[in-house]
């Protein structure tokens, strides 16, 4: 009997998967409720080292997606889905690229939440608001799954795929939309 089937037969993995889903739902709901209840300031403008707030948001979101793509490729490599032998640094690089992608998303999400809040003015904006909540929910669920032992072997790849899909969708409804309408903003 393999460790995977052992894990699948045990009641603990089910509880842990439920805990992961619960954590993700709690985070996504909390963000959505905050964005809806919080009175958007509409005036917060921070640029860090970029030329404007919108430049910061578009570039950091694009960087986050790029890092996430690298993370997915590294995951495929680690799982033996690429034709080359796995280098020793792949695991650490996978984790670092994921952490940096999450880090890059934070100022963007902060501005969205504080300054704009949850909005539903049109389909794109509503989709972006929902997907933004879903992304951080998926992130919380993945963190729980990564830190849980003895889960079904497919749990982590599925969680990673959901997280990556959510991030790409969030970017597609905001950063990609802006780039399509206006081109890349000046750094």
């Amino acid at each position: 009997m393999t460790s995977t089937s052992l894990a699948s037969d045990s009641p603990r993995p089910a509880r842990r998967l439920l805990a992961a889903a619960g954590a993700g739902a709690a985070v996504a709901l909390s963000i959505g409720i905050y964005g809806n209840v919080h009175d958007p300031s509409g005036e917060l403008s921070f640029t860090l080292w970029f030329s404007s707030t919108i430049a910061l948001k578009v570039w950091l979101a694009t960087v986050a997606v790029t890092l996430a793509m690298a993370q997915v490729l590294l995951a495929l490599w680690i799982y033996g889905r690429l034709p080359w032998s796995v280098p020793s640094w792949a695991g650490a690089m996978h984790r670092i690229s994921g952490r940096l992608a999450f880090l890059a998303s934070l100022p963007v999400a902060y501005h969205c939440l504080w300054s704009l809040g949850f909005q539903d003015t049109d389909a794109r904006v509503l989709a972006h608001s929902l997907l933004g909540c879903a992304f951080y929910g998926a992130f919380a669920a993945k963190v729980v799954i990564v830190r849980s032992r003895a889960l079904p072997g497919a749990a982590l790849p599925i969680a990673g795929a959901v997280l990556f899909s959510a991030l790409v969708a969030v970017w597609y409804t905001s950063g990609a939309w802006f780039i399509g309408e206006n081109g890349f903003p000046e750094l």
């Binding site: 905050y34 919080h38 300031s41 917060l44 403008s45 921070f46 640029t47 860090l48 952490r99 940096l100 999450f102 880090l103 934070l106 100022p107 999400a109 902060y110 939440l113 504080w114």
Partner: peptide, 25 residues
Amino acid sequence: TVWLVAAVLVAMLFAGPQIVAEDQP
């Protein structure tokens, strides 16, 4: 570092944007 930044930003969602808004035009 990432967790620290995330925690600070979550705290700032409730405390206010004063810290990052200092470089406002």
